[in-house]
């Protein structure tokens, strides 16, 4: 797993590779750093993620649980059809209140920058 952080009003956590039980603790630490320092909204750019398991799903849900009370939102970018299928199976794509699924970073930034929740 590769992680690149792009700080800003809405931080972008750009992840590539496989998000599994081994990778999640480090990724969770980096995501929570932003949320715990007051960023209500974050973008998880999983465009280059080819694999996700229940630990990765748990991280997305934890991020939603942490940002919702702050009035923010988690923007998730997923392209890989297999990763999308896993998210559908566990029902995460139904959490439309506090979460938005995008197919590109441009789309995520355009939408999330406009709602002033960052």
């Amino acid at each position: 797993m590769d992680v690149q952080i792009k700080p800003g009003d809405i931080p972008i956590i750009d992840v590539g590779g496989e998000i599994d039980h081994f990778a999640v603790p480090e990724l969770e630490h980096r995501v929570m750093e932003f949320i715990d320092t007051g960023h209500a909204s974050i973008i998880l750019d999983f465009s280059d993620v080819s694999y996700i398991d229940s630990a990765g799903v748990a991280l997305i849900i934890l991020s939603i649980q942490k940002t919702t009370p702050l009035g923010g939102k988690v923007g998730l970018i997923v392209i890989d059809k297999n990763v999308l299928k896993i998210l559908e199976i566990v029902g995460i794509t139904k959490l439309v209140q506090a979460f938005a699924l995008y197919s590109s970073l441009d789309e995520a930034l355009a939408d999330m920058s406009g709602d002033h929740s960052g």
Binding site: V57, I61, G91, I92, T93
Partner: peptide, 10 residues
């Protein structure tokens, strides 16, 4: 592929 009719809840 995938006999799951409806996604479950989280």
């Amino acid at each position: 592929a995938l006999d799951v009719a409806e996604p479950s809840t989280v």
